[in-house]
Design a protein around this nucleic acid. Sequence first.
DNA 1: AATGAATGAGGTTTCATTCAT
DNA 2: AATGAATGAAACCTCATTCAT
Lengths: 227, 227, 227, 227
Amino acid sequence: MRKPTKPADKSAQNARPASVARGEVPASNRATRAQERRAAIVDAAMEEFIARGFAATRLDDIAKRAGVAKGTIYLHFKDKESMFEELVRIVIVPVVARLTALPPPTGSVRDLIEAFAGNFLKEVIGTRRGDLVRLIVAEGPRFPAVADFYYREVVSRGIAAMRALIELGIARGEIREKDLARYPQILVAPAMIAVIWQSLFARHAPLDAQEMLRVHLDLIFGERRTT
Amino acid sequence: MRKPTKPADKSAQNARPASVARGEVPASNRATRAQERRAAIVDAAMEEFIARGFAATRLDDIAKRAGVAKGTIYLHFKDKESMFEELVRIVIVPVVARLTALPPPTGSVRDLIEAFAGNFLKEVIGTRRGDLVRLIVAEGPRFPAVADFYYREVVSRGIAAMRALIELGIARGEIREKDLARYPQILVAPAMIAVIWQSLFARHAPLDAQEMLRVHLDLIFGERRTT
Amino acid sequence: MRKPTKPADKSAQNARPASVARGEVPASNRATRAQERRAAIVDAAMEEFIARGFAATRLDDIAKRAGVAKGTIYLHFKDKESMFEELVRIVIVPVVARLTALPPPTGSVRDLIEAFAGNFLKEVIGTRRGDLVRLIVAEGPRFPAVADFYYREVVSRGIAAMRALIELGIARGEIREKDLARYPQILVAPAMIAVIWQSLFARHAPLDAQEMLRVHLDLIFGERRTT
Amino acid sequence: MRKPTKPADKSAQNARPASVARGEVPASNRATRAQERRAAIVDAAMEEFIARGFAATRLDDIAKRAGVAKGTIYLHFKDKESMFEELVRIVIVPVVARLTALPPPTGSVRDLIEAFAGNFLKEVIGTRRGDLVRLIVAEGPRFPAVADFYYREVVSRGIAAMRALIELGIARGEIREKDLARYPQILVAPAMIAVIWQSLFARHAPLDAQEMLRVHLDLIFGERRTT
DNA sequence: AATGAATGAGGTTTCATTCAT
DNA sequence: AATGAATGAAACCTCATTCAT
């Protein structure tokens, strides 16, 4: 009844890797290839969701971009919604993991926070990960699971970490404004604004996020640092 | 997609009827009813777009909520996209108008900014208008016309106004951090964060936006004010 | 975004009926036309479901046969399943209505039952309605709602009516086998078999259902009637 | 669709291995295991087809239930359609074989028929095999090959056998109604109805099939037997 | 001006079938 | 012989848009 399915010519992908010719154990067994495909789908979905938002993204496009057939997506994800939800987890978890493996707090609090801001600048602002943050802001209300996850894993931890640093800064006399510990959001607000700005207004008015964050820290630490 | 904004030709229909020009008391005549319908559609569309985002909103639902037939929407708007784009204009223009009709700057700069923050708290944070901001953040990348408009009418003006205030504050010695004038975004960042927080995380951790903004101003103006 | 929809040329259907030309009140207003379409869908769905069964029937084919667009079906029915369930109701209800409006029981019980059998022969066996019975047998287990409805509206009533007739026949001495009243199914079994036979085996071995039912009645009423 | 039945070429694979022909005790060798798998597939498919009908049955589910991989099914059957068609054969053939190996007709015709009915009650009504009959009624119109086969192997033989018994009964004076021999369907109709009833209406109104068949025989043989 | 029935392109999802391993 | 990941045609269903009334 149904027509048979002719797999597209993927001979390039199926070619044995050179390692095999060399007699090594081939790293590319079936399970590994499946993982690669899954990763390709995740990447492609990420791009598409960021570019179009959840509802306007077509699974067809994700499949095409990932180089797999539409049906293949359903071998890895239950449906579009849970793909989106898992996606956020998949992308965010390793980032959180890296950040929680923080370097030991040596030096001044300002140094610490600057290191943090530097990381954030390099790894988030103006990158795909920054776009993901905007995506979460955009879709959060319709995906409570995503908002929950993001709050639990990123926001609440981030706030707690910032609060600890602020309290340390206050204790050491680096920070004067004692109430800041009650609203660590103030500390990160300019960074978040930078993320959003780059997505929306960069071409209207480019923003030097690094310099802005420096000024913000000057404001908090009450003095200018010579860089 | 990505087409430039076409001003709706239908706006000609919005011209006041001759009876109004002649100073007569307009009864509930046809033109008035049309205006009422248009307003109902705008309100309904606003609610739906905020609740579901652009792509997931159904014209059917807008029509139902507005109490009109689906076809009626097309008497007022060319299509869904331009409805969305016009909508943002329609809702934002009066807000901007009110804000630009600012009271004469009397008193300290901090007083001015606090008055401003108070307004923002009451009129934006946690309200439908706050949700609209989040909607623009969400849909901006897919609606350059909307992002453009919002940048031009709201962001650039807001930034300019803030900068003027900051410079005044610096000149008067109220603000010490001179570089702040280069990044007025820092001044508004916590307010924006408050808007987003209320949409996404209010139920996880309620945020006292008013108090946070006060602390932020303390940070900038370098002293605690007795309220 | 979406392309506009060009209605297929249905000019023949849209032509005003002759009654309008004659100045009569046009019977074909919008609501009426909707009802006609609904009826066309019901007929078409009936044909397709009977020909292919529930799962193998395509809504596309129903739409094509009914001369409407696919979407139109969804103006009348929630989905394929409820269409099927409603369909059975829609087709069966008038049949039951007609049968319950029975002629007054005059004459012998055998006459009554023969009249009944004659009706059944003409109206059910070898007709679309007979096919519907087979369809219910086929899909019943997967559509409990259908089986329930059919049992409630047709089977239990039919059994009750037959039992009453049998008891009358026993009381009048027309029927000897007293236990028959406990199993009216025996009375209708050959008629049901005829229905199924016509669907499945008619081309292998045609069955003279009328004659078979006559023999069956002879068996029950214990004598041959001269026809 | 509607293509004639193609005998599966794969049946060649079913030939007993040479070892068996040589009289050796076949260990759990490859051919045997293949036969076991095939049997498992047949059983599983039977269950699924009965539970869901042909179109709604998924090969995935059959494979899962049979404990084999999906691809394995295709080592035994050409495709889903021919699997279904073969299935009916595979299940029905042994039943027919047993029935045609009837005990020599000793005793009264009524005794014979009662023995028959007893068997039918035990082996068919309310069992998986009864469900198979309903399945054939359900899918017959779409699987002419199945209907043909069923008519040829079961129905026509059954009718012939019943006719022979009826004629014997008439000759011996046990059956009065001579025309019954022309419609042996009447004899089996209640049994068929019982099969269908158990599938569809058992939970609405349980039917004592055994008693019903007894009453039916009383009707035919014109007297009550003390059991 | 207003209606809402009708349309059909286009989206998501399923699943029979294939084939490299 | 057996596997099961991958395929993609085809199904169901939605909904922006049109247009006769």
